[in-house]
């Protein structure tokens, strides 16, 4: 089962907010509906401000979807993967870098995928077209978005 063909990259189309996430997690508080709206707005602002963004995802650190520009099933899978990437990144940061995880980058020929810590309980994933985006600019914008989302989620 190759994931390559699974994800659809039509570019981000803001999805309606997911209904409330239910009592899933004992660790991460679920955002309110207004919190989710604000997250969606921050994501939309990021894709407006930067060319080449193909997909975005925000998830809890225990792998639950808050918002993605993919379909619900794709988003659900991406949420689990993003949380695992965050956890692994945090482990690499503390063990190899003796510091706090900020972000990690996966590059393919065509795409750049950034995984950004959002506070210590959420994660932002950004998929961009390599030919349309420079890494420095992506980091600058995505880190700013991660901070904004972090503020929204800690307030909601």
């Amino acid at each position: 089962m190759e994931n390559e063909s699974f994800y659809d990259f039509g570019g981000p189309e803001p999805e309606p907010a997911r209904p409330s996430i239910g009592r899933l997690s004992t660790v991460v508080a679920n955002p309110t509906a207004t919190g989710v709206e604000a997250v969606i707005e921050e994501c939309a602002a990021l894709s407006r401000s930067l060319d080449g963004i193909l997909a975005l995802i925000v998830a809890t650190s225990d792998g639950m979807l808050i918002h993605s520009t993919w379909s619900e099933v794709e988003g659900m899978r991406a949420a689990a993967i993003s949380a695992a990437a965050l956890g692994l990144g945090q482990r690499i940061a503390s063990d190899f870098g003796q510091g706090e995880f900020h972000d990690s980058v996966v590059s393919t020929g065509d795409r750049v995928i950034g995984i950004y810590a959002v506070g210590d309980r959420h994660v932002l994933g950004v998929v961009a077209a390599a030919e349309d985006v420079t890494l420095g600019l992506l980091h600058l914008s995505a880190r700013r978005t991660a901070q904004a989302i972090g503020r929204v989620l800690s307030d909601s």
């Binding site: 225990d62 792998g63 695992a84 956890g87």
Partner: peptide, 12 residues
Amino acid sequence: DFMWDILSKGML
């Protein structure tokens, strides 16, 4: 085993 820590976050 580090993945056990990561994946068990929030498990019920």
